[in-house]
Amino acid sequence: MALERELQTPVCRGDEVRVRELLAVDFVEIGASGRRWDLASTLALLREETPDQAVIEVEGLEGRELAPGVVQVFWESRRGGRRARRTSIWRERDGRWQQVYHQGTPLPG
């Protein structure tokens, strides 16, 4: 859960080395826009993000274990006046946790 929070911070999002540590090579995201992202396209997007755009409020963070070494995290985001319900799947491999999947669903106003 701490890694999910970290990944949403401007400091982390601006540090490509750290983002590569936290996102798996087979990472996939279905964004709140409906667009599908992989690791390469996510890294490209983050390179263009300004510090103001990188501010994401995390609310209601909770998680559950799906299987040994696999955790699903749920939370809501606020960013630039927009809200979304979010879920991520994290996998532990070789003693390290990485996000393998993320999805955002827009919430009304």
Rank of each mutant, 00 (worst) to 15 (best):
Q99C: 15
R83C: 07
Q99E: 13
A54P: 00
H102M: 12
E65A: 15
I89M: 14
D52E: 14
F74T: 01
R64D: 05
T105P: 06
Q99F: 04
V55M: 06
Q72D: 07
T105G: 14
T50R: 08
V71I: 10
G81S: 10
R85A: 14
P68W: 03
Y101S: 11
R82P: 02
P51E: 08
R91Q: 09
D94C: 12
T87L: 12
A84L: 08
Y101D: 00
G104V: 08
E76C: 15
L66H: 08
G60K: 10
F74G: 02
P51M: 14
E49H: 05
G104L: 10
Q99P: 02
G69K: 13
L66I: 09
T50K: 11
P106I: 08
H102V: 08
E76D: 11
R64Q: 11
V70F: 06
V73R: 03
W75V: 00
T50L: 08
E65T: 09
G69H: 10
E48I: 02
W90S: 02
T50A: 12
Q103G: 10
Q72H: 04
P51F: 09
I89Q: 07
R83E: 02
V73D: 07
G60I: 04
G69M: 11
V55Y: 01
R96I: 07
R79A: 11
R93I: 03
E65R: 12
